[in-house]
Amino acid sequence: MALGDTHGQTPARRRAVVTGASSGIGEAIARRLAAEGLAVDMVSHSQARLERSAARIRGASPDAELRLERADLSSIAETAKLAERLAAPEPPDIVVSNAACTVDPAETTPEGVTRMLAVNHLAPYLLLRSLVRPIGDRPARFVIVGADPGTLARLPVDLDDLHLRRDRLRGPFPSFRPALGYGRTKNMNAMFGYALAARLRGSAITVNGAHPGVIRDTGLGRNDRGLLRVLGRVLGVLPMPGPDTGADTPSWLATSPEVAGLTGRFFAKRREVPTAPHTTDVDRCDRLWEESARLVGLPVEL
């Protein structure tokens, strides 16, 4: 459900979409983009949290133009409807795909999809693909927030098990299953980014990935249990940067003239970094693309 909010409306402003914008890094990205004068569509599953986040952003930028979009990104149907709303009356100039969750890999949606797969990978796959045609020949930037390439190098995507169901994901400690599943979906983000950039090469749309860093107060650990929860508490007492630091590289990729025209890259701390060979292998990326298309009901061809 979209709630139009015309506070400080300036029709000529460029428009950005940020998913997972009701807290943590997503809210910090939305705040930065609003401070730069962009109109921002803030996407989250919680209307109440969106409203609180918007109030905080307006506290920092009273003239912020914000539109609040409540959508459950674990639902393929809701994500498709969200894409339709975001394309009207004109499509956005920037999309930052930031929303993610860490839950038990066994948890599924009413559509029969593993929830973590749906939110972390299928939602950005469907959303960004669905906005390509409305954007057309206009310049636009897609930014996909990923995770640490070094850590993820040890968690290649099992292309025969996108739903994260195989025993080898389980490991000796059941409480760590969400972290393992999360890592694999974050590798899917990188693979999707490369595949989409390759298919859009020659167009005015760029696609890049970003590692925000190891950041406190992201909310990702709210569902942790057992040893994973203990580890989270231990790490929580260590000095770590906050969401505003995590927002730096994604926001820079979204607006900086330094990266205008660059596409198909992955960045950390504003520097291009490599990701694991299993994320850049063209055949693997194509297979993930095709399986994802089937799961969300899109044709394979862009």
Rank of each mutant, 00 (worst) to 15 (best):
G26Q: 02
D5G: 05
A83K: 03
L180F: 15
P178I: 10
L50M: 12
R67S: 14
I29Y: 13
E107V: 12
V43N: 05
L38M: 00
S22R: 05
L50R: 04
L152Q: 07
R294H: 08
R216V: 12
L117Y: 08
S61A: 14
A87E: 09
A39E: 11
A195I: 03
P92L: 08
S46W: 00
R233D: 06
M240T: 14
G8D: 08
A254I: 01
G209V: 04
S256T: 10
L235C: 02
P156R: 01
V43A: 02
T255F: 02
P134R: 02
A204C: 08
V145N: 03
V273Y: 11
E65D: 15
C101P: 00
L68D: 04
K186Q: 11
R265F: 01
I76D: 02
G20K: 08
R31V: 04
V282N: 03
P124Q: 07
P299G: 07
I57A: 06
G246T: 05
S44L: 00
M188L: 09
A190R: 07
P62C: 07
R70W: 04
P299D: 11
G297E: 08
G202W: 05
V96A: 05
D160N: 15
Y125D: 10
I94E: 01
F142D: 03
V282T: 15
G193Y: 04
R14N: 02
A21E: 02
A100D: 09
T245Q: 12
L117E: 00
S61D: 09
M42C: 08
G226P: 01
E90K: 10
G246C: 00
N98T: 06
E65H: 15
V18T: 04
V296G: 05
L33W: 07
R225A: 09
D72W: 03
I25W: 10
R265Y: 00
T206Y: 01
I135E: 13
P277K: 02
Y194T: 02
L164H: 10
L126R: 06
L169C: 07
P277F: 01
A204Y: 10
D93Q: 12
R85Y: 03
G209R: 04
Y182F: 03
G24R: 06
A179Y: 06
I144Q: 14
L159G: 09
S75P: 03
H278A: 14
A147F: 07
S74N: 06
